[in-house]
Nucleic acid binder design. Structure first.
Lengths: 349, 349
DNA sequence: GTTAGCACTCAGGATCATAGAGTGCCAGCG
DNA sequence: CGCTGGCACTCTATGATCCTGAGTGCTAAC
């Protein structure tokens, strides 16, 4: 039994040497953009083994779907499976911090112009630093401390709802409150909600906002209820606010010389929903998540990798990168970690 | 004397027939994307004249810089000067309204979610409808009626300034107010400014906000002053808010198959300043302005044309299009006019 | 002033040959 | 039995060559 389990495992697992070859092929391909042949791998990375040996291993690795060939007589190219091994190996070992990093961090830390413009700037910085597209999202605003809520009459049933959150983050939308209320009533409503909510995240006070705080407003009980419901639905949705920047840089890369590839990505970026979903689906509670090529369910992203990392505002501000599968993961991951950390510092002051 | 003046004028002005040729070349090039030869022009647009005649005229038009050749034996291509004639001739004649227009308009008119998201949607619609990049800008907020001003304490000298303008347009930034004021003082300050400003554009009340309205606050006179100054500088700047959408569609056009061209445009769009400047510089008080290729001073835009038209919010919301020089001006201009009009309606309710 | 005719130019596509990178497989070696 | 050198084979990329067709400029005749 044990033996059979072992043998079965051997079929799927790669040997030490095979791993070495896979990593070398990925590394070489990321560096040069050209398929790597057995000769190259032998010469540059594995002097101990002849090209013929490498070739034999490569044939096996192709069968196991770690590598593939563009055509019969071309070198080997890595599949997502190979990239996965490569990224996992990077994540495990210690990475060096690029020298320019200090300058970037400085730029961020000395920002005072508000969360929105800071996030925009960070995405642009990320893009420039990595030749990828910088992304930022504010997720789960219900977990962020509320400072104040206010309503403003727009006419008819329409009311402008403004929620000011921790650190001066402003969220506003037009909502519908039945009954054409006067500004005075709206102010009173806002005052009461603010009193209870201020200093707490919405998720905490949501239940507290029951009937008793609206004492004396029984006449408009329905309005109070739908006001609370509206705030709820506003803060509840995931990744309400999205920021994208530095997209220009990706166009310098050879991988995106084909306009169609970029168009596919752009079509995702220009709609809110798919991007928000992706950020939500692939980000993890802590640390950098890397999703590679067809691991992303969106067809349009099949030529891209997505890196995400939760950052400031109690991990509710998520920072990310979208770049070619053949990106410099080492640098990208390090940069993302650094800037996410810097952003956290900047928020928490 | 008169005769010499006449002759000189003849050198610069084009004859009726020459104009006809220029317009035909532009039209043909916009339609097909290929240089137009004398034979084509003669056959399709000017049966009355032989190719040889057209050729002679073309040689003259080349000397006058209306046309040029890619190489000796290619057909003629229009220069900006030729496009200028073409666009001017379009602007003068009546244009037909595309059938799909009704659907677009409907989509806009039934929008309730606030000015920002409306503008974003309109830019995307514009982009899709014309295969150009849709652009929108809010200019001169000081001319827009104010609803309310409020300040919110962020800690230290930093204060969040929120100005709510006509129609629920929210403008906010972090500003610096000296002296770490309490929220109560800030509220009082906001209340006083709001009382005076509400219902008027800032440009109107700016002078009224002299010392007397801050009676009883002499102790913090400097704060009052810098608060007013901050609001002033916020609302004063041109094209504070920019919206870009539908950029993906431009990549379907043959003109933008070359990634570098798109990259140039994108580098402009990703910074606020240059785009804001362009909108400010090239928009006119009323109606559509068309700026073609190298008429735009930004080098990055040399392969593009820029269409702009003031729209709702008392002409302060400017709508625009960025597309290839070889765009369907007739359709683009009509679309822009339509959507700008529709947006105006939507705002003024 | 207009036009037909003609020689000339040039880009773009098709065809072909060649070089070079890389593979798979076999036979021999330790 | 695993590793390696050798060899025949495959396939792409590159460059040279040729050819066609579109289009021009010029000249001479109407």
């Amino acid at each position: 039994m044990i033996l059979s389990a072992n043998t079965r495992k051997e079929v799927h697992a790669v040997t030490e040497r095979q791993l070495e070859i896979v990593l070398a092929v990925v590394y070489e391909f990321i560096r040069t953009g050209e398929p790597a042949g057995s000769r190259t791998i032998s010469k540059k990375y594995m002097r101990g083994n002849s090209p013929a040996t490498i070739r034999n291993e490569m044939a096996d690795l192709e069968e196991m779907r770690y590598l593939y060939q563009a055509h019969t007589s071309s070198g080997r190219l890595p599949t997502s499976k190979a990239y996965r091994l490569y990224v996992d190996s990077i994540m495990q070992r210690r990475r060096s911090v690029p020298l320019e990093a200090e300058a970037w961090m400085h730029e961020i830390r000395n920002r005072r112009e508000g969360i929105e413009s800071l996030l925009t700037q960070v995405t642009q910085l990320l893009g420039k630093a990595t030749n990828c597209i910088g992304v930022a999202a504010l997720s789960a605003l219900e977990e962020v401390t509320i400072q104040r809520v206010s309503f403003m009459r727009l006419g008819g049933d329409m009311v402008l709802l403004i929620v000011v959150l921790e650190g001066g983050l402003v969220h506003h939308t037009n909502i519908r409150l039945p009954g054409d209320l006067s500004q005075d009533v709206l102010d009173e409503l806002a005052r009461r909600i603010s009193t209870v909510a201020s200093g707490h995240p919405w998720s905490e006070v949501r239940r507290t906002l029951s009937a008793y705080i609206f004492e004396g407003l029984e006449r408009i009980r329905d309005v109070c209820r739908s006001a609370v419901a509206e705030i709820d639905s506003q803060l509840n949705r995931k990744n309400t606010r999205l920021f994208v920047g530095g997209a220009q840089h990706i166009l310098s890369l050879p991988d995106f010389q084909d306009v169609n590839k970029f168009q596919a990505v752009l079509s995702i970026l220009e709609q809110e929903q798919p991007l928000a979903d992706m950020v939500d689906r692939y980000s993890i509670a802590d640390g950098v998540s890397v999703t590679i090529g067809d691991e992303i369910s969106e067809q349009e992203m099949k030529d891209c990798s997505l890196l995400l990392m939760p950052s400031g505002l109690g991990r509710k501000a998520i920072l990310g990168l979208i770049g070619p599968i053949r990106m410099d993961y080492e640098r990208s991951i390090t940069m993302l970690e650094l800037l996410a950390e810097g952003l956290g510092d900047s928020f928490d002051r």
